[in-house]
Design a protein around this nucleic acid. Structure first.
Length: 644
DNA sequence: GTTTCGGTTCTTTTT
DNA sequence: GAACCGAAAC
């Protein structure tokens, strides 16, 4: 491996940067990932660092795994320390070791968005909050989340958020307090808690802090512009001993401020870390000069950031096209037509991607693709492990692993006939907030308390608990789900869902997926934190024909990825930028999002801006082209006319 | 008192 | 499509 030959001079400088805090400002398509991979390799092969002494924090677990395995190929050594991944999975892993130090059991459950909502709703109900007037759980959770991410004051945030609504700040604080207590008593953490308690662990326990500082002699953080203050604080704890920190990112691509990310982490890095050195990557290998001109023109509308420009090195190509078609259906047909044309010219559907602001923007396209039998994959809005049937299957495992997990218990018993939320709550209370289904006695008691209508199902399920110990099922989560499915759930699905067959396939997929985990605990600890792309990667590993498929994705989920051809849907006012965001926080983040969309394209870019949108009630809405299009000089875009 | 069912409403972005 | 609400059914 020859670092000088494999890298350009910008990249080489960053890769071989000396120890100490380092900021790499990497514009889109400039080989940011390559730089990180070579940095990993360089630390090991040239600096004598052991592979497990490097911690890599990224935005998806898939990104971390890919970078590590490519670095492994370079240095011919095993890299995986078991800690690298997202901030959430890193936090999870250290908490599994030391959760007792922050007042939790190590077998704590992780609440996903859905669970958190339910629990907040329970709290609000229990405190007798007016259902009509009191804010909805997801609104409350977003306030709680932003506050924890920014490490700001909850009361101030509530006051600001609800200043125009008739909401008593005290009531919201009460709900928050109860929510926090309930999480503690059920030994569960939501996504925010993972970061909060991981930080607490490092901040308040010098022995643990020292342990990890010494374990990880180098810390690398990708996508640093999208970290929040709490994540930055965790990083600071980790490196405060040795200062060997390299952060990489691009403030132009900061698109997560709505969940508390703050690109000032990035802009102020040199202020926050004394003696930091900065490297810039500006040579873009990905896109044609025409696409980069357009991207540069778009981002010029946001002045307050690190000045950098995408420098093109590729040959000239085609001017990006803008198409004003009649409506969503026409847009869909246009794309299908172009895809066929492209395929005739040797561009495969798998080399193309359709991007959009919001999932529902792609509905008409999905219908049309299905009708025309064009295979496609959607990077979905509902994550695999958040689908109802998958969560049902996992609820049993969760309850086994954490008897205090009220959400898992409720979910599980509510599958039985005539058991709803109230009955579940009462049962749970009767057992004093702890239902250990591995206790013979508890199982019998529970059976006695269940309504008559539930008895038959219960008799079918019961043997699973008995066999759990005898057959050592703790080492085989898939077997438990398999038995549960066979004894009860398969029939339940038939009765409950009209697409039961489809869901049964998912269950089988779930059982297969569990095969690579050696215990119930390790399975549960991982699944809740899998991102869409992670789950995708796991599923796709088995299906090779997936390679052939067109991908549909939100711009958010396309971050860091690239395709030969990119279509952007509904680049219209009200849609991209989204109306709601505009009202709440202005258009600069939406502009960055559009910039991210454009810079995903290598060769060809299509910008679609229909004239009308059909609404669900049958009416039509007239659409103006997006403001972002007005900001692009006319000569940078080719307007394609006459497509109706 | 609870569960279940059927009709209505509204979709931002995600760990 | 799934979350919510009101009314019927148990």
């Amino acid at each position: 491996m020859n670092f000088k030959d494999d890298l350009n001079s910008e990249q080489y400088a960053a890769v071989t940067a000396p120890d100490g805090p380092t900021l790499v400002v990497a514009a889109a398509g400039t080989g940011k990932t390559r730089t990180l991979i070579y940095r990993l390799a360089w630390l090991v092969s040239e600096r004598g660092i052991e592979p497990w002494e490097v911690l890599l924090l990224t935005f998806t677990n898939k990104a971390a795994n890919e970078m590590l395995s490519r670095a492994e190929d370079l240095v011919k050594r095993q890299f995986n320390s078991g800690f690298s991944g997202t901030f959430h999975s890193f936090s999870n892993r250290i908490l599994r070791q030391h959760a007792d130090r922050v007042g939790f059991g190590r077998d704590f459950s992780i609440l996903d968005a859905d669970d958190s909502k339910k629990l907040v709703r329970n709290c609000a109900d229990e405190l007798g909050m007016d259902k009509k007037k009191f804010p909805k759980p997801d609104v409350l959770l977003s306030v709680f989340g932003v506050v924890s991410g920014r490490q700001s004051d909850l009361e101030d945030a509530i006051e600001e958020r609800f200043q125009y609504a008739e909401v008593d700040v005290e009531d919201v604080l009460k709900v928050h307090k109860l929510y926090t207590e309930k999480k503690r008593s059920s030994n569960s953490m939501d996504f925010d808690d993972l970061l909060i308690y991981a930080h607490q662990l490092l901040d308040q326990h010098p022995d643990i802090r020292t342990l990890y500082q010494e374990s990880f002699r180098h810390v690398l953080v990708d996508e640093y512009q999208d970290t929040n203050l709490l994540q930055a604080a965790i990083v600071r704890q980790l490196v405060s001993g040795h200062g060997n920190l390299m952060v990489v990112g691009d403030d132009f691509q900061s698109i997560y401020s709505w969940r508390g990310a703050d690109f000032r982490n990035f802009l102020d890095f040199e202020g926050a870390y004394e003696g930091a050195t900065t490297y810039k990557l500006q040579i873009n290998y990905r896109s044609t000069p025409e696409i980069l001109d357009t991207a540069n023109a778009v981002i010029a509308g946001n002045p307050e950031q690190f000045q950098k420009e995408l420098k093109a090195v590729r040959e000239n190509g085609e001017i990006p096209r803008i198409i004003r078609m009649r409506d969503g259906a026409t847009q869909a047909r246009y794309i299908i037509e172009e895809l066929r044309q492209l395929e005739r010219n040797g561009v495969l559907p798998s080399q193309c991607c359709v991007l959009y602001r919001s999932h529902f923007h792609a509905m008409e396209l999905q219908m049309e693709l299905a009708r025309e039998q064009v295979p496609y994959v959607v990077t979905s809005g509902v994550r695999f492990f958040e689908q109802a049937h998958i969560k049902d299957g996992c609820s049993l495992l969760r309850l086994i692993s954490n008897p205090s997990d009220i959400l898992a218990f409720s979910r599980f018993v509510e599958l039985l006939p005539k058991v709803g939320a109230k009955t579940a709550q009462k049962l749970f209370n009767k057992f004093g907030g702890r239902v250990n289904v591995l206790h013979e006695e508890t199982i019998d008691q529970l059976g006695d308390l269940l309504p008559a209508a539930a008895q038959e199902s219960w008799q079918a399920i019961k043997p699973i608990f008995h066999s759990y110990r005898e057959d050592q099922l703790n080492e085989d989560p898939g077997e438990i789900i398999f038995r549960f499915n066979k004894a009860f759930y398969s029939a339940y699905m038939q009765e409950t869902f009209d697409n039961a067959k489809f869901r049964q396939e998912d269950m089988d997929g779930l059982i297969d997926f569990t095969a690579k985990f050696e215990s119930v605990e390790s399975f549960l600890a991982e699944v809740a934190l899998l991102t869409n792309l992670d789950a995708d990667a796991a599923v796709q590993a088995e299906q090779s024909d997936d390679q052939q498929m067109l991908r549909l994705s939100t711009v958010h989920q396309a971050k860091g990825l690239e395709w030969k051809v990119v279509f952007v849907l509904f680049v219209n006012e009200e849609m991209f930028p989204s109306r709601k965001t505009l009202e709440e926080q202005g258009d600069s983040e939406e502009r960055r999002l559009f910039y991210v969309a454009i810079t995903r394209a290598e060769d060809r870019l299509y910008i679609c801006a229909p004239m009308v949108r059909r609404q669900r009630d049958g009416g039509i809405q007239f659409l103006d082209p997006s403001r972002f299009l007005e900001e692009i000089p006319d000569e940078f875009l080719l307007e394609e006319k006459g497509f109706f």
